[in-house]
């Protein structure tokens, strides 16, 4: 699925953003990526969607080796991923449904297939009634739902979420988290970077903690090790 093997990532100046990072996210798994700002969470996600390449080591994402893949292959990989960010990254001059349709149009989907797919994902995220609303007419939680709908519309095998609740109040955070759980329940793996420790503590999911670019805790590995003892 997603496999990091002894991954190092150096900044241009030579400092290491990631040091010897190895983990394996299995099909349909839900995992948190935690740590302070600058611990390397976003770097891990950017290596998965091939925005950056590892300096050393290997990153495998569903059959793609992002270390050695040519640039022209990157779009193929990204069409299989769903990505959401803290700042939503919506187009302000387009309605919710247009924002979602944009992801299909930009990947050359046939126009007659776009409408039904958009309706399906907007319903899935609970925004069927606000399809014609512009982002500025929506609350923060609703905007993130539009972004999640856009990420889901290409049927990704994994949803990468970089601090998806970072800009949201508690109530909206709970709503978005519930939505991500639902997405996971329908079979899509979720890798969520967050520093909301309450969310992590109160959930049964795997958590991988980064500190200064190193994995200092991985609940699955630790559980495995305990089982081995």
């Amino acid at each position: 699925m997603i496999k990091f093997t002894r991954v190092f990532k150096a900044y241009p100046k030579g400092d290491l953003a990631l040091k010897d990072v190895s983990f394996h996210l299995r099909k349909g798994e839900f995992a948190f990526l935690t740590g302070h700002s600058g611990a390397g969470k976003s770097t891990v996600l950017s290596l998965i969607h091939a925005e950056r390449k590892p300096t050393e080591g290997e990153v495998r994402v569903s059959g793609f080796n992002t270390t050695s893949m040519p640039r022209r292959e990157i779009p193929k990989l990204r069409r299989r991923l769903g990505i959401v960010f803290q700042d939503f990254r919506l187009l302000e001059d387009r309605t919710a449904e247009e924002n979602v349709a944009f992801a299909l149009e930009a990947t050359g989907a046939r126009s007659n297939t776009i409408g039904p797919k958009v309706v399906r994902v907007l319903t899935q995220v609970g925004l069927a009634g606000k399809a014609k609303a512009f982002p500025k007419e929506l609350s923060g939680g609703e905007r993130q739902r539009v972004a999640i709908a856009r990420a889901l519309v290409n049927d990704p095998f994994v949803l990468l979420a970089d601090e998806p609740t970072g800009n949201l109040d508690q109530r909206a955070t709970r709503g978005i988290f519930k939505l991500l759980e639902d997405v996971n329940a329908s079979g899509t793996a979720v890798l969520m970077a967050t520093h909301n420790l309450d969310l992590v503590k109160n959930s049964p999911y795997r958590s991988i903690e980064l500190e200064h670019g190193e994995i200092v805790f991985d609940s699955v590995v630790d559980a495995d090790q305990e089982a081995a003892r």
Binding site: R72, P75, R79, R89, A103, A106
Partner: peptide
Amino acid sequence: AREIGIMRLVGATDSF
């Protein structure tokens, strides 16, 4: 820039 970034993110090709 924003639109281009989003297009890249969702997997639009460079030529597109």
